[in-house]
Measured scan of single mutants.
Amino acid sequence: MDETGKELVLALYDYQEKSPREVTMKKGDILTLLNSTNKDWWKVEVNDRQGFVPAAYVKKL
């Protein structure tokens, strides 16, 4: 969790967005987890953008 109590995830792999609903991340990025109710796609925030990334590409910290 960060200082505001939000849950964080670590990008395990690079991911290039394939639609406007997704976000690009690089391996090693720390992202804010917004929603993990879907087992396949998690909603995150990175670089002031919100979108989805494959759940298998990130790990909760």
Rank of each mutant, 00 (worst) to 15 (best):
S36P: 06
R49N: 06
T37Q: 11
L31A: 07
L34Y: 04
K43F: 15
T24C: 06
P20R: 08
P20W: 10
I30W: 04
L34I: 15
Y15I: 01
Y15R: 02
V58Q: 00
K27H: 05
Q16W: 14
A11N: 00
F52M: 08
K39W: 07
G51D: 01
D2N: 15
K26M: 09
Q16V: 14
T24E: 04
N35G: 06
T32E: 09
W42A: 04
F52T: 03
G5S: 13
E45S: 10
P20F: 09
D40C: 12
N35R: 06
W42R: 01
A56R: 15
K59C: 14
N47Y: 12
L61I: 15
V58W: 01
Y13R: 15
M1Q: 14
R49Y: 05
L34V: 12
K27D: 02
V23W: 05
G5E: 13
S36K: 07
G28I: 00
S36M: 09
W41Q: 03
P54K: 03
Q50A: 12
N47V: 11
V23G: 02
R21W: 15
V9Y: 10
P54S: 02
L34S: 02
G5A: 12
Y15L: 01
G5Q: 13
Y13P: 00
P20A: 11
E22I: 04
L12D: 02
V46G: 13
K26R: 12
K39G: 09
W42V: 06
D40R: 11
N38K: 07
K43W: 14
V53T: 02
V53E: 01
A11I: 02
E45Y: 06
G28Y: 05
P54C: 04
K18S: 10
D48N: 14
D14S: 08
T4M: 14
M1T: 14
P54R: 03
V23I: 15
E45D: 06
K39L: 09
K18G: 08
W42Q: 01
I30K: 05
I30H: 04
K60N: 07
N38L: 09
N38H: 12
P54M: 03
T37G: 10
K6N: 09
T24Q: 04
A11R: 01
N38G: 10
I30T: 06
N47C: 12
N38R: 09
E7N: 09
T32F: 11
T4K: 09
